[in-house]
């Protein structure tokens, strides 16, 4: 564990808490893509099956349980509790366009052809593109609430900080995982356009709006 990895985890935790608080306090999930949240639940479920097979640390276990539980709680809030506020007309990205290619890729490019490892690989690939329905929704409506921008920024920073962590681990531990690194870079690149808008608009006190 190094400071970059820890900051990445904290950023990830913060993103989830911001999202849950936004929905809970405003009693609304307007502007939030339920499809991205379903994909994230799928990501955590398939990745953290190793909770049953290997133990890393109490920290590791606690975070995994939190990520799984919070992802299902978010889906519950969007699709059941506050479903009247869910913006389904703008959440039209087709999940199968992401899940199916990623599934094929996980079977072809992985470290080991075993069920758990293929599911882990699938979750790494899926996470890298899981935010696309949300970004698609923002581009479709041309705007995002400021709190939603903070959520997206924290979520994007998490994998960006992991990249720094991987550079650090490569130099100081000789450790690297090419699947995680390439997927992590793809994931971070997808946020670049949003990062630019966040810095130039949201941090200057304006709402995030896209040019028509």
């Amino acid at each position: 564990m190094n400071v970059f990895r820890l900051s990445g985890d904290v950023s990830h935790l913060l993103a989830i808490l911001i999202l849950l608080m936004k929905i809970w306090k405003t009693r609304s999930c307007a502007g939030i893509s339920g499809k991205s949240q379903i994909l994230f639940a799928l990501v955590y479920t398939t990745r953290y099956l190793d909770l049953f097979t290997s133990f890393i640390s109490p920290y590791n276990t606690a975070m995994k349980v939190f990520f799984i539980a919070s992802s299902y709680a978010t889906i519950y809030l969007i699709y059941l509790k506050f479903k009247a506020t869910y913006d389904r007309n703008h959440d039209t990205f087709r999940m199968e366009f992401l899940v199916l290619p990623v599934l094929v890729l996980a079977f072809v490019v992985n470290h080991d052809f075993t069920p758990l490892e293929i599911l882990w690989t699938f979750s790494i690939y899926l996470e890298s593109v899981a935010i696309l329905p949300q970004l698609f929704m923002v581009s479709k409506t041309g705007q995002a609430e400021t709190i939603t921008s903070h959520y997206l920024f924290a979520l994007g920073m998490y994998r960006a900080l992991y990249i720094v962590n991987w550079v650090y681990r490569y130099y100081f531990e000789g450790f690297y995982d090419l699947i995680a690194i390439i997927a992590g870079v793809v994931q971070t690149v997808l946020y670049c356009d949003f990062f630019y808008l966040y810095v130039t608009k949201v941090l200057k006190g304006k709402q995030l709006t896209l040019p028509a």
């Binding site: 990895r5 985890d9 990830h12 990745r47 190793d50 097979t53 290997s54 890393i56 590791n60 975070m63 995994k64 990520f67 470290h111 080991d112 075993t114 758990l116 490892e117 882990w120 992991y162 962590n165 995982d177 995680a180």
Partner: peptide, 10 residues
Amino acid sequence: RTPDLLHDEL
């Protein structure tokens, strides 16, 4: 799974 496939990151 081999020990080096123990994924220690989240």
